[in-house]
């Protein structure tokens, strides 16, 4: 009897701990995720709540002191024409950038997903990712040069006799300006350039998941290329398009660097937040502005969900 006991190895603390985790698997999971959960809770949710709380404070019209009493006054301020302009301007830009990115990205993603093989595929990834490796600011400044009045685009346009076209474009009311670099058109172009990879990659991933047999089945049943694209490929690639559009839309909504450097200095939401919280000390209004993209994205995700974009997840 005693021999039998002796033959069992002594159980150290580590062994007992292992045994405990084996008996109660939930405990191990709990220990493992406690730290990230805490981080997520405090840093993410905590700061979000702080932001939300701030947005319900108001600033005293008279003294400029933040009043820590709950009120909807600050949100009402968002509806002031000047502030509503900023929101409308930002959302319009984000929508335009998203649509343009989707249209541009689709053929590229489609080619990469269905036709590119081996080396070409590698070249494709490199081509898409390469711009992401260089500094965002460097890219934006480079675009400022390209788009400027004496930049390469107007030089080339004048060279091929298209200067009048460019001038006509810039004379468009609302989106035109003194040069591409000081117009909404310029802001738009740079946004599309900077965020395009974020549209291509998820789109390409979702297109790759559309089985070849689906396309063959469609052709087999008599559909031509366009019909297959519209009725089969697009609906099946929709999750990727939505994922990409979430990137381009939200990134444009929140960006405050590009419209600062390219464009006519009119504020976007991000710039307004930056200025209001910084020099103005109007934290409540800055917070209310910051809540706007969050609300817009929630609405957007809600619509996307209704459309069934997440069914495939």
């Amino acid at each position: 009897m005693s021999d039998l006991h002796a033959s069992l190895p002594a159980r150290g603390l580590w062994d007992r701990l292992t045994a405990l985790f084996w008996r109660r698997p939930g405990l191990l999971v709990g220990v493992l995720i406690a730290a990230p959960l805490l981080w997520l809770g405090v840093v993410y949710v905590g700061s979000l709540i702080a932001l939300l709380v701030q947005s319900f404070y108001s600033i005293d019209e008279f003294s400029g002191v933040v009043q820590r009493e709950f009120t909807l006054k600050t949100y009402a301020e968002l509806l002031r024409p000047a502030n509503a302009d900023i929101i409308l301007r930002t959302v319009t830009m984000a929508a335009a950038v998203t649509v343009a990115s989707a249209i541009l990205a689709f053929p590229i993603a489609y080619y990469a997903a269905r036709f590119a093989k081996g080396r070409w595929k590698a070249a494709f990834y490199l081509g898409i990712m390469l711009p992401l490796w260089s500094s965002y600011l460097v890219k934006v400044y480079a675009w400022k040069m390209i788009l400027s009045k004496e930049g390469i685009i107007s030089w080339a346009a004048n060279g091929i006799g298209a200067g009048a076209v460019l001038d006509a474009l810039l004379a468009l009311p609302g989106i035109g300006g003194n040069s591409l670099s000081t117009s909404y058109i310029g802001t738009f172009l740079v946004f599309v350039y900077v965020w395009l990879p974020y549209m291509i990659l998820p789109m390409q991933a979702s297109l790759e998941r559309v089985p070849q047999s689906m396309l063959e089945a469609s052709a087999d049943l008599g559909a031509g290329g366009l019909r297959t694209l519209w009725s089969v490929i697009l609906p099946l690639a929709l999750p990727g398009v939505i994922a990409g559009s979430i990137f381009t839309f939200s990134l444009t909504l929140g960006d405050y660097i590009i419209p600062q450097i390219i464009g006519n200095s009119a504020n976007f939401i991000g710039m307004a937040v930056y200025q209001l919280q910084g020099t103005a000390g109007n934290i409540p209004l800055a917070a209310a502005f910051a809540v706007v993209p969050i609300v817009i994205m929630l609405v957007y995700l809600g619509i996307a969900r209704k459309l069934g974009a997440f069914d495939a997840l």
Binding site: I59, F62, S63, G64, R80, P81, A82, N83, D85, I86, N267, A272, Q275, L276, T279, A280, G281, N282, L285
Partner: peptide
């Protein structure tokens, strides 16, 4: 006050 300068100049 300054905070109004900020929002009005933005406008």
């Amino acid at each position: 006050p300054y905070y109004r300068w900020v929002s009005d100049y933005i406008a």
